[in-house]
Nucleic acid binder design. Structure first.
Lengths: 157, 157
DNA sequence: TCGAACGTTCAGAGATCTGTAAATGCTCTG
DNA sequence: CAGAGCATTTACAGATCTCTGAACGTTCGA
């Protein structure tokens, strides 16, 4: 374990902290960044316990939150009975794509309100703007993420 | 207080709940949505206490979190010594714009890691993708928000 | 079929967050 | 300039969240 590993660990912890501050579970964030900043290709649950000084139960919980979101995945590990985890390719794009669900519920909340209040009132105008904004964002964000994928794939070659 | 007000209150509470689940403070979210779904133009701190059944201290705290982010503002209220609050015009665009700070720290986290690990390694490639993605998003998001502002303002007339 | 090696679940301890009530501070009014 | 009427601050209590440790379940190899 050379100097570099220690520095990468610090980077990982710092990022985990800011992610935690913007709503992600603390341990979930730490597991994610550990995988992101690891010099290994994959890490086992035991590796994560050791690195982060947390119990296997905590690792299990975090991992099972991260997998459904598409941030990490189980890696096939022939000849090993342990689960190996790795950070997923394009995970960030996936993460941002998931935000669409939120944009959607924002749009819906506005719609609900408009059904009750109509457009011709103070509330009506506020909600109308809100609905317009989130409708716009939903459409454009999806397009934007696709655009990035294309240009990144093109740049790879 | 007719039927509509009750229904709007419910909408407000539902939205507050989903906002709370995505990281916003519970009370802060409730104050925000109360102002958003209010049929009045503005609400005083006392109004908010009564509506949400919370103490004036809690209102004060929430309000002082919302104002710096640009979601709400104090409204001039001639002849009244109470503070009047209102939901701000284009607040949603502002909110999304604030996310840029997050995008920025993501980009930075990647940059930090790359300084340590270089680009030619497993970590290097992961961080490179991350940096590319957040760089892209930062540029495009700002543009997107401007675009919405323009088209919305155009539609108004 | 047994047992070793893991992963998962769950009750409970501990830490953290959040709202209240009361004290404090500020600003107009009379 | 006194004091009424608010807003803000603070210590603390209560609620909530989160991790641990141990029990349990599962899989695989002998």
């Amino acid at each position: 374990m050379d100097e570099r590993d220690t520095q990468l660990r610090e980077c990982a912890e710092r990022l985990a902290l800011t992610l935690a501050q913007s709503g992600m579970q603390r341990t979930t964030a730490r597991v994610m960044t550990a995988l992101l900043f690891s010099r290994q290709q994959t890490m086992t649950a035991a590796d994560l316990c050791k690195e982060l000084h947390i119990s296997s139960g905590a690792v299990s919980g975090a991992v099972n939150q991260l997998i459904p979101t598409g941030m990490i995945e189980r890696a096939p590990a022939p000849g090993s009975r342990r689960d190996h985890y790795r950070f997923r390719e394009h995970a960030w794009a996936t993460l941002m794509g998931n935000q669409n669900a939120l944009l959607d519920s924002m749009w819906n909340a506005a719609a609900e309100g408009l059904k009750v209040a109509g457009r011709d009132s103070a509330v009506g105008r506020r909600l109308d703007e809100m609905q317009d904004f989130y409708g716009f964002m939903q459409r454009e964000m999806a397009a934007l993420i696709d655009k990035w994928r294309e240009q990144y794939e093109a740049g790879e070659r």
